[in-house]
Write a protein that binds this DNA or RNA. Structure first.
Lengths: 224, 224
DNA sequence: GCAATGTTTCGACCGTGCTCGAAGCGTCGC
DNA sequence: GCGACGCTTCGAGCACGGTCGAAACATTGC
């Protein structure tokens, strides 16, 4: 009955949990592939694809095809602002949120983000690697420093052997609100952590649980 | 999978057309009753009531019970800001809106808003009544001026005879973005317009169509 | 060329939630 | 008190949209 722009259409796009998770994931500013977004949203690939096409049709996303990868990103700052506004209301209105249980606390410390480590530990690790000039961070970009090759080789981490993805990539951490390390290097480090049995993945969760000795080893290698 | 505030919950509340219409109607700042909101949304009273309780539960609305009337209003400026942000995206993203047809143009000029007149004609009428000091407007409130009683009596408009609602009320016009006159006086004026056959209601629409002579009469009385 | 990987389309299933009529409750006017 | 009015609750019907498996399509690497 009421005229004007179709706000219900836009809001209902954000109103599905899977799509909301995707949009939240994209709030970091980096474009993500359909597979990554499917993992973030916790749905299968076909489902994610369906959601993504709806978001595209609604004008909320942009698409950049690069080879067989398709990178989805937020359409612009106006869309980001809208998500921000909705998040603000959700936060203000929902103090009824159950207090974080042990699972949530663990997620905050360390968890899997697609194929690399995220959480406080991951953010601290990246900070330390930048401090030591092993990696170079300018603005939003991360590059390998001159000593990177030898540094990681000494640790037995081989990040070149993997597929052709960017070696380093910044990934915004939702809990800490700062970047952690993604890309093939981030993936290789997670592999290393799991291979050395410093930590194990919690079943049916993204949480990564360090053993006491594993934590010491990790901190000695990456946070020293 | 992703944590943080439940933005899907909030967005899906806005994502239903009926609820979106209600929220848009409340963007004017004045609280409205369940019946008024049902009309705005174009749904039955039970349906509207169900939506309203959901919006209440979601924390988007406040409720002020006055006798047997229950006035619903937006919970606060943060909620209003969110609606505004969503509206902005919907506007920016939907230039695919079909160009306004004759029906829409007519709606812009004059239409029914619950029980009173809205649109350009209504806004102009209120401006003129204020100019002539028949009505007094300070800030958002509208009151009767000293000459109001005799002025409307001379026109054969009896606004006291109606139920116990505020005589004057400002109602924000979506098309003009300025206030028009609601309340029992606004209703009485619309009654007059239809009784005099200056205009008729378009079937299945809120548009009000003035006849050529009716328009002249209306302008002579209210816009002179 | 063929196999591997990333992504979309198709088809079918199923549940959530929107919808309204009828009935129940609370408030006001006489 | 009784009737009128405003609103909410209950119950049942129904459609829309989310979900996934299988298969098709596209791109790359060998």
């Amino acid at each position: 009955m009421r005229e004007g722009p179709d706000i219900a259409r836009i809001a209902s796009l954000v109103g599905d949990p899977a799509r909301a998770n995707m949009l939240s994931a994209l709030m970091g500013g980096t474009a993500l592939t359909a597979s990554e977004l499917a993992l973030e949203a916790g749905v299968s690939l076909p489902t994610a694809s369906s959601h993504l096409s709806k978001l595209m049709e609604g004008g909320l996303l942009t698409l950049a095809s690069q080879g067989r990868h398709r990178y989805y990103g937020l359409a612009g700052p106006q869309v980001a602002g809208m998500i921000e506004a909705i998040t603000g209301v959700a936060e203000a209105v929902g103090p009824k949120r159950v207090r974080p249980g042990p699972r949530d606390a663990a997620m905050r410390v360390a968890r899997v983000c697609y194929d690399h480590l995220a959480g406080e530990q991951a953010v601290a690790m990246l900070d330390r690697l930048v401090d030591k000039k092993v990696l170079l961070r300018d603005d939003k970009e991360i590059r390998l420093g001159p000593s990177a090759a030898s540094h990681f080789a000494a640790l037995g981490i081989d990040f070149e052997a993997k597929a052709r993805r960017p070696v380093c990539r910044a990934c915004l951490d939702w809990s800490v609100r700062r970047s952690h390390l993604a890309g093939t290097l981030g993936a290789a480090i997670l592999d290393k952590i799991l291979a050395e049995k410093w930590a194990r993945r919690e079943k049916d969760s993204r949480a990564v649980m360090f053993s006491p000795t594993g934590r010491q080893a990790f901190e000695k290698v990456f946070l020293a």
